[in-house]
Design a protein around this nucleic acid. Structure first.
Length: 464
RNA sequence: GGCCGGUUGGCAGAAUGGCUUAUGCAGAGGACUGCAAAUCCUUUGAUGUCGGUUCGAUUCCGGCACCGGCCUCCA
């Protein structure tokens, strides 16, 4: 399969380090608040990648970190600690807060049918490993202590800036952020904090440099190498991570290991809300529970995410979500119809033809919109039987993850009151008393029930 | 200030040097229905702008306009 590699800015043929296996590390959430649907677009895209790799026959070891250690809002020794701030606001212990939002996060992922990574690792449970890692960097002369903190020396590292194609000399340092005068170079970043102003930071550990806590980037280098080794096939994250977080992870990892670290860097574009930039720090977040409350199926959001390529900005509008929900509903009724009668022989030629077309799309840098178009072709193909359609669709759904196998007619059982209304309407219709019939239909509609008069004279009733 | 990306029908969003510019939703017409709903059939509709290259450009190149991103934390 082909993947776009941020490092080379090119589409490259994917080749695993070990035949048949893929090690994939994805930056996970910082658990001080709910994950919003923008965050989740990235995790959805990573789920598609995971599923596509599985379809390609790989044994995928998917690792995701949970950032549950307080980290500053910047690489400087300034700013505020987001976790600590949230914990104060919610009057909770920091760790309890982290667990709470971690649980919420996986609930949302479950609603979106995202496969849980094989390894989920928490930063707070790997602090000793981080200390060892920083010690190695220190031994190699790539770290220095200044003002009590330990910093990574990006100039000594030698090839900093490769990922974001950043020219260090051209950076306007301090233009938008307070300068940390402890640093030797503007791009240097903290590996271990001891002298930050957060004396009441609850999550602190002893270290050779004093009591403190780790810098933000170190956890990813440490945990990824712990679970995947020093060579990683794919590293994912949002595009926002390219210039700082991933650049820093890469520098410290390659500095520590002494060789190339990640073969393919895959970055997801943002979801964009019209007129609003949604971010946790601004507090204007839209979450899966919020969508559910408005009556949307979380899988409608999953569907929406599939309609755009992962490297394009996706404009989120309520109209777009409505259209995704409508498409999902239509798909559901089609799938239910298809599954009602699966007798007959599968047309293997047609099946192979469609799946080849599908694979061509997904293996070409995850062209999910095109894969969806192929799916609709199958659904609407009048020349193949249901057995063939279902054989194709069920395979496609291992990638789409729309739970097609669970789609079934929802049987509505009317209560006595509703049944009485239905009986009364039946009588009215038999007498051709249309006014009365319509009146009852409106009354049922007010209760959230739609009535369909089927051609055979029976009545179908559904909850809206 | 520096560096990037984008502009496709009503919305979202693919693709492509020429053939009907996917797909979903919405819209229109018809069948069906007492009327609806659902379904089925049919169907309208788009490449920001000005130039250039070319037999031919939505696609390649350049100017302009507008939108967005990054250089701070962020998926």
């Amino acid at each position: 399969m082909k993947l776009y590699n941020t490092l080379t800015r090119k589409l490259e043929e994917f080749k695993p380090i070990t035949e048949g296996k893929v090690g994939m590390y994805c930056c996970g959430p910082t658990v001080y608040s709910y994950a919003h649907i923008g965050n989740l677009r990235t995790y959805l895209n990573e789920d598609f990648l995971h599923r596509i790799l599985v379809r390609a026959g790989y044994d995928v070891h998917h690792v995701m970190n949970i950032t549950d250690v307080g980290h500053l809002t910047s690489d400087e020794d300034t700013g505020e600690d987001k976790m600590l701030k949230a914990a104060e606001q919610e009057k909770m212990d920091v760790l309890a807060l982290a667990r709470k939002y971690e649980d919420y996060f996986f609930e949302e992922e479950k609603d979106l049918n995202i496969i849980r990574p094989r390894t989920v690792c928490r930063a707070t449970e790997h602090v000793q490993d981080m200390i060892e890692f920083v010690k190695k960097l220190e031994e190699k002369g790539l770290a220095y202590v200044s003002g009590g903190n330990v910093y990574f020396d990006t100039v000594k590292f030698g090839h900093y800036g490769e990922l974001s194609w950043k020219d260090i000399s051209g950076l306007q340092h301090g233009a938008r952020v307070e300068e940390d005068t402890n640093k030797r170079n503007p791009t240097d970043f903290v590996l271990w904090f001891t002298s930050s102003k957060f004396e009441n930071q609850i999550l602190q550990w002893d270290s050779p440099w004093g009591r403190g806590y780790p810098g933000w980037h170190i956890e990813c280098s440490v945990m990824s190498s712990k679970y995947l080794g020093e060579y990683i096939d794919i590293h994912c994250g949002g595009v926002d991570h390219i210039p700082v977080h991933h650049e820093n992870e890469k520098a410290q990892s390659e500095g520590c290991f002494g060789h190339k670290w990640v073969n393919y860097w895959v970055h997801n574009e943002f979801l964009q809300l019209k007129d609003i930039k949604m971010s946790k720090s601004l507090g204007n977040i839209l979450t899966i529970p919020a969508l559910k409350e408005k009556g949307y199926d979380p899988l409608a959001y999953r569907y929406l995410a599939m309609t755009a390529h992962y490297r394009s900005l996706l404009q989120f509008t309520w109209e777009a979500l409505d259209s995704a929900q409508a498409a999902l509903n239509n798909l559901k009724s089609r799938v239910i119809e298809i599954k009602k009668n699966l007798s007959g022989v599968v047309n293997e030629d047609k099946k192979a033809g469609y799946l080849n077309k599908f694979d061509a799309a997904i293996f070409n840098d995850m062209a999910m919109p095109q894969a969806l178009a192929v799916m609709w072709e199958v659904v609407k193909d009048a020349d193949i039987n249901n057995a063939t359609k279902w054989a194709i669709l069920s395979e496609m759904d291992t990638v789409f993850g729309l739970k097609m196998d669970e789609m079934k007619e929802e049987v509505y059982v009317p209560d006595a009151e509703v049944q009485a209304l239905l009986d009364a309407r039946k009588v009215a219709r038999a007498a051709k008393d249309w006014a009365k019939s319509d009146e009852i239909r409106d009354a049922l509609k007010a209760k959230g029930l739609t009535v369909k008069d089927l051609p055979d004279g029976s009545v179908e009733i559904k909850q809206i």
